Simulated scan of single mutants.
Amino acid sequence: MITYRDARAIDGPKLGAMARQSFTETFGTLYRASDLAAFLDEAFGPNGLPAQLSDPDFAVRLALDGEEIIGFVKMGPVTFPGEWRPDAIELYQFYVLAPWQGQGVSQELMAWSLEHSRSHGAKEVILSVYVDNARARRFYERYGFEEIGRYAFRVGETLDDDRLMRLIL
């Protein structure tokens, strides 16, 4: 049975490992091993995602199958370059492991992220998505997200072509 709860600092190591697994299974073939390793260490190592679990600027919701973290979504202040509304919020990461995709986990996590955004006074949600991640783009578009620009997403020394998307709440 899949359950959902807010992440706690103690979840850091397991969440970091799950995020590494999910990113690697989705994008691992796109990068040199050194670039992938550098990104995974920075984003999901002890000073990355796990450290943000105790930062009050960030909120992370977990999806669990028993004790196993199978998905998560992270929300926080907008950090993309440019001018953003003060009542904007960023959807940073939205990961669901492959065996649980298509099982309703993504819909539950998205429902939480939109409710979290509204309850914290946000009027828009901003995210970036890899240009060739058609499945994710279609998912966001179903919720009303629209492309608003481009963003160079760094993975090690590789710069990916991401699209910025926005949902007006």
Rank of each mutant, 00 (worst) to 15 (best):
D160I: 01
W112N: 03
E146D: 00
K14Q: 15
L167E: 01
E124R: 13
D11M: 06
G76P: 11
L127H: 03
A122N: 05
R154M: 08
L127Y: 03
D162Y: 11
F39S: 07
I168E: 06
Y143R: 04
P77I: 03
E90F: 07
G144T: 00
P99Q: 08
D161R: 10
I10S: 14
L53W: 05
A134P: 00
I168F: 04
I126E: 05
V129D: 02
A51N: 10
Y31D: 03
Q21P: 00
I89F: 02
R135W: 02
N47Y: 05
D55S: 08
G156S: 02
Y130F: 15
A19G: 12
L30H: 13
Q21I: 01
G104W: 07
D132Y: 12
F39K: 07
L159S: 11
S117E: 07
G144N: 00
T24R: 13
F139R: 09
E147M: 02
A59M: 03
T79I: 11
T3P: 00
I10F: 01
K14T: 10
D160W: 01
M1G: 15
Q103D: 10
V78L: 11
P81A: 04
M18I: 00
P86I: 03
Y95R: 04
D55L: 05
G156D: 05
A122E: 01
F58R: 06
A98S: 13
Y143Q: 02
L167Q: 06
F23N: 07
R118N: 02
R8W: 01
E108D: 11
W84L: 03
W100I: 03
E115V: 11
Y4C: 09
E25F: 05
F58G: 01
E25W: 11
H120N: 15
L15Y: 11
L40E: 09
R5Y: 05
D55M: 09
A37L: 11
G102T: 12
M165T: 07
V60G: 01
D65S: 14
V73Q: 09
F145H: 04
M110D: 06
L53R: 09
M75P: 05
G71N: 07
R142D: 06
R20Q: 15
D65A: 15
Y151R: 01
D65T: 03
R20G: 09
G12E: 09
S113L: 13
F39L: 08
V96Q: 10
F80T: 10
E42T: 15
A38M: 10
P77W: 02
Q103K: 15
D160R: 02
I2E: 05
A17K: 13
G12A: 12
R154Q: 14
G76F: 08
A37T: 14
W112S: 07
G82H: 09
Y92H: 15
F58H: 12
T158R: 14
I148Q: 02
